[in-house]
C-alpha cells in the first residue's frame, strides 16, 4: 500500500517537474525565436517537411471523414425529415471540431513524431552538442524553426481538412444521395457564422499547433540520447499530443461555444 502511494507520489512529482522543464524550455524557445525569424528559410524548409508533406494524408482523410459524415448524417436526419440540413451538420462538425482535432492528431503522428525523432537522433549522435561547440545555438538553429513551422502549418492543414470534408459531404449528400444542392449550400451558409464558427475553429487549430509542436520539440530535445530513449520520446510525443489535443479541445469548446444552443 505504501509502495503504491509512493509510486503515485513519485509520478506526480516527476510530472510536475517535467512540466516545469517544458515551461522553461518554451521560454528559451521564445527567447531565441527572433534569431530563427531572421533566417526564415530555415522555417520554410521545415514547413515543407512538416506541412507540405502532410498535405496528402490530411486531404484524403478529410475527404473520407466528410463522406462518412454525409452518409451517417443523412441516415439520421432523414428520420426527422430534415435531410436538407445535411450541409449544416457536415460543415459545423468539421469546422468546429473534426477539422482542428483530427488534423491535429494526424499532424502529431505524421510530423510531430518525425520532429521528435530528428531532434532526438541529433542529440544521440552529438550533433546538437557539436553545434553548441561551434557557437551555434541549437535552440535557435534546430528547435525554433521546427516549432514555428508546426504552428504556422497547423491552421492551414486544419482548413484544408475541413474544406475537403465539406466537399466529401457534398459528394455523398448531393451527388450520390440526391439532397437538393441549393438547400445543402444555403442552409449551410445561413447556419455557419464566419467569426463564431470558422474563426473559433482556426483559433483551436493554432492552439493545437502550439501544443503539438512544443511537445514534439521538447520530447526530442529532452530525450535520453540512446536508441531506446529516442523511441520512447516518439511514443511520448504521439500519446502526449493526442491527450493534449483532446483535453485542450474540451477546454476551448466549453469557453467558445457555451453561449449558443
Amino acid at each position: 500500500m505504501t509502495e503504491l502511494l509512493r509510486n503515485i507520489g513519485s509520478m506526480a512529482i516527476n510530472g510536475v517537474w517535467r512540466l516545469g522543464l517544458a515551461a522553461r524550455f518554451f521560454a528559451l524557445l521564445l527567447r531565441y525565436s527572433g534569431q530563427a525569424f531572421l533566417r526564415f528559410h530555415l522555417t520554410i524548409r521545415e514547413i515543407y517537411y512538416g506541412g507540405f508533406l502532410s498535405l496528402l494524408i490530411i486531404a484524403v482523410s478529410g475527404l473520407f471523414v466528410g463522406m462518412v459524415l454525409g452518409l451517417q448524417g443523412y441516415e439520421t436526419l432523414q428520420r426527422f425529415g430534415s435531410g436538407d440540413a445535411l450541409g449544416v451538420l457536415v460543415a459545423l462538425s468539421l469546422v468546429r471540431e473534426l477539422g482542428p482535432v483530427v488534423a491535429g492528431l494526424l499532424f502529431a503522428s505524421r510530423a510531430g513524431s518525425a520532429i521528435t525523432a530528428e531532434i532526438g537522433l541529433m542529440k544521440a549522435t552529438e550533433q546538437l552538442k557539436a553545434m553548441d561547440m561551434m557557437a551555434v545555438n541549437p535552440i535557435a538553429r534546430v528547435v525554433a524553426p521546427r516549432f514555428w513551422a508546426g504552428v504556422l502549418s497547423m491552421p492551414l492543414l486544419a482548413a484544408i481538412f475541413s474544406a475537403m470534408g465539406v466537399l466529401g459531404g457534398w459528394l455523398i449528400g448531393v451527388v450520390m444521395i440526391g439532397v437538393d444542392e441549393g438547400a445543402f449550400w444555403s442552409q449551410m451558409q445561413s447556419a455557419v457564422d464566419f467569426r463564431y464558427d470558422i474563426m473559433n475553429g482556426v483559433i483551436k487549430s493554432v492552439v493545437f499547433g502550439v501544443a503539438v509542436s512544443l511537445i514534439a520539440v521538447f520530447e526530442g530535445y529532452d530525450c535520453s540520447p540512446t536508441a531506446e530513449g529516442v523511441s520512447r520520446a516518439i511514443t511520448r510525443t504521439v500519446v502526449g499530443s493526442a491527450l493534449a489535443i483532446l483535453a485542450l479541445d474540451f477546454v476551448l469548446t466549453s469557453f467558445m461555444f457555451r453561449g449558443q444552443s
Partner: peptide, 20 residues
C-alpha cells in the same frame, strides 16, 4: 563564451556530422 567557441574546434568521438 560563444565568442570563445568561434575560435575553438572540437572533433567529437564519432564525428557528429549533420546527417541531413
Amino acid at each position: 563564451l560563444y565568442d570563445m567557441r568561434r575560435r575553438m574546434g572540437m572533433l567529437f568521438q564519432f564525428g557528429a556530422l549533420f546527417t541531413d
